[in-house]
Structure formats: C-alpha cells, structure tokens
C-alpha cells in the first residue's frame, strides 16, 4: 500500500499512449490565478472613480441582478468584475492549454510560484494591506 508503484512497470502498462506531460496542468492552474488577479485589479480600478466603476459594471449587465435598487438590491459592479475574471480565466486557459498541451514544464518550480501568487492576490484583496499602497500609487500618479 505504502509503496508507490515502480515507475518502469507503470510506464510499461501505459506504453501505447504517450506519457503524460505537465503543460496542461500548468495551463489549468495558471488560468484561474490570472482570473483572480483580474478580479483583484478590476476591483481596485472600480474603486478609483465613479466613471471607472461604471465601466467595470457595464461588463456585468448580462448577469441577472446586476442592476436594481430598493430592498432587493443588486450585485452592482461586482458583476463586471466576475465577468472580466471569467473571461480571462477561460481565454487564458484555452490559449495556454493549446500552446502547452505537448510541453513538459517544470512543475516543482510552478508550485512555488502558484502558491506565492495566490497568497499575494489574497493579500491584495485585503483592504487594510492594499489601501495604503493604492493611495500612494494614486497620489504619485495624479
């Protein structure tokens, strides 16, 4: 049970097929990360001005409940952020999967990068951390 099956024998078993390559896995995991960054960036963009918020919001009009007020409310520009993130996720997945489907990429190095970038995007969604940085950026940019 505890022993991992010996590599040679397992490869021999599935000899008629080409051995699995890591490209599709990297593509499948890179794409959601890009989606998360889209979510984060579009969120902070929408916070800069009313006009930018409307721009982001406009992408989400197709989602039911993206508009409206009163007690029932609506999800507002969150719908646009979701839409942009979905687009980036699916589009980049499609592209990278197509490009890397036969490629061998360094998984071990990617794991570190994947975890680090997830941690970073999570941090960037946490207002007490990111707001001072954004303020600085906006004040120097303006």
């Amino acid at each position: 049970m505890n022993q991992h099956p010996n590599n040679q024998s397992s490869v021999k078993n599935s000899d008629n097929k080409s051995p699995p390559v890591s490209g599709p896995l990297v593509a499948a995991t890179l794409a959601p990360v890009l989606g998360f960054y889209t979510l984060m960036i579009s969120h902070h963009i929408s916070r800069v001005s009313k006009a930018l918020d409307q721009l982001v919001h406009a992408y989400g009009y197709w989602i039911p409940g993206s508009l409206g007020n009163g007690p029932d409310g609506s999800i507002g520009s969150y719908s646009g952020k979701e839409t942009l993130a979905l687009m980036v996720w699916f589009l980049s997945w499609g592209i990278f999967h197509f490009l890397w489907r036969k490629q061998e990429l360094p998984v071990n190095r990617w794991i570190t990068l994947f975890l680090g970038s997830l941690a970073f995007v999570t941090l960037c969604l946490f207002h007490p951390f990111i707001d001072p940085i954004l303020m600085l950026l906006l004040s120097t940019g303006g």
Binding site: G65, G68, P71, S74
Partner: peptide, 13 residues
C-alpha cells in the same frame, strides 16, 4: 452567493 449578495447590498440590507 451572488443571489444573496443582491439583498446584502439592498436598501436597509
């Protein structure tokens, strides 16, 4: 979550 978020943001929500 999207569905309930609408009410979260609703008037007096």
């Amino acid at each position: 979550g999207n569905w309930i978020y609408m009410r979260y943001r609703g008037e007096n929500g």
